[in-house]
C-alpha cells in the first residue's frame, strides 16, 4: 500500500491525462486528414482516367509499404530540418502539424484500401442503375456508390482508426514530446523502481481507449451494413 502511495506521489509530476489527450487529438486530426486523402485516392483509383488511377495506385502502394516510423523521421529530419518547411515560429507547433501530416498520409493509404474493399461489396447493379438513370461518373460515385461503400467498409476503417490511435505514439519520433510514449519514457527514466506500474498505467490507458472503439466499430458495421 505504501508502495502504491509513493507511486501516486511520483506520478503526480507527470500529466498523464494530458499526454493521452495529445494522442487523442492527434488521432482526430490525422484521422480526418486520412479520411479526406483516402477518399480522394479511392475516387481516383476507380475513375476512368488512367493517369489518375496510376497515380493513386502508386501513392497507396508506397505509403502502405513504407514503415510509419520512416515517414515520421522524414517529417522531422528531412522536411523540417533539411528542407526548412515551417508553419509557425514555434517548433512545438511545427512538430505537431508535421506529425499530423505524416500520420494522415500514412493512414490514408489504408483508408483508401478499406474503401476499395467496401466498393467491392456494392453490387454491380447499383452502379449500372445509377448510370441507367443518367448519372455521370462523379454523380454515381458520390450519390450511389460511395455512401454504400462507406457503410460496407466500416469494419476495416475501424481497424485503421484503432491502428491510428496506437500509432500516434510514433509522433514522439517527429518531436511531439508531450504525448504518451515520451511521457512514459521520461517517467521510467526518473523512477526506474516503478517501471512495471508505469508501463501498466499507460498500457491500461490504451486498453481503455482502444477496446470501446473496437466494440463501437463492430456494432456500427453490423448495424449500418446494407442488407442484401
Amino acid at each position: 500500500m505504501e508502495y502504491l502511495s509513493r507511486y501516486w506521489t511520483f506520478m503526480a509530476k507527470y500529466n498523464v491525462l494530458n499526454a493521452f489527450w495529445v494522442n487523442v487529438s492527434l488521432t482526430l486530426a490525422a484521422g480526418a486528414l486520412a479520411l479526406i486523402l483516402g477518399t480522394i485516392a479511392v475516387t481516383m483509383r476507380i475513375s476512368p482516367v488512367s493517369s489518375l488511377r496510376l497515380a493513386s495506385t502508386f501513392y497507396v502502394n508506397v505509403f502502405r509499404d513504407i514503415p510509419l516510423t520512416v515517414v515520421m523521421v522524414i517529417m522531422a529530419s528531412v522536411v523540417w530540418m533539411q528542407l526548412n518547411v515551417s508553419f509557425s515560429n514555434d517548433f512545438h507547433t511545427d512538430f505537431y502539424i508535421l506529425a499530423v501530416i505524416g500520420l494522415g498520409i500514412y493512414h490514408s493509404s489504408f483508408i483508401a484500401e478499406a474503401l476499395r474493399s467496401g466498393i467491392n461489396t456494392v453490387p454491380v447493379g447499383q452502379a449500372e442503375a445509377a448510370r441507367g438513370i443518367g448519372l455521370t461518373f462523379l454523380q454515381s460515385t458520390r450519390i450511389v456508390v460511395l455512401p454504400q461503400a462507406f457503410r460496407g467498409s466500416i469494419a476495416p476503417i475501424g481497424n485503421t482508426i484503432i491502428a491510428l490511435i496506437k500509432n500516434t505514439t510514433v509522433a514522439s519520433v517527429t518531436g511531439v514530446s508531450t504525448e504518451t510514449s515520451s511521457t512514459m519514457q521520461a517517467a521510467i527514466e526518473m523512477g526506474p523502481q516503478f517501471i512495471f506500474l508505469i508501463f501498466l498505467t499507460f498500457a491500461l490507458g490504451y486498453v481503455i481507449i482502444v477496446i470501446p472503439v473496437g466494440v463501437l466499430s463492430t456494432s456500427l458495421s453490423r448495424r449500418l451494413a446494407v442488407k442484401r
Binding site: T169, I188, I198, Y206
Partner: peptide
C-alpha cells in the same frame, strides 16, 4: 491486452 497496447510503448518498457 497485447493487441491494444502500442508496440512502441512495449518496446520502450522492455528496453528499460
Amino acid at each position: 491486452f497485447c493487441r491494444a497496447v502500442p508496440v512502441l510503448l512495449m518496446m520502450i518498457f522492455l528496453w528499460y
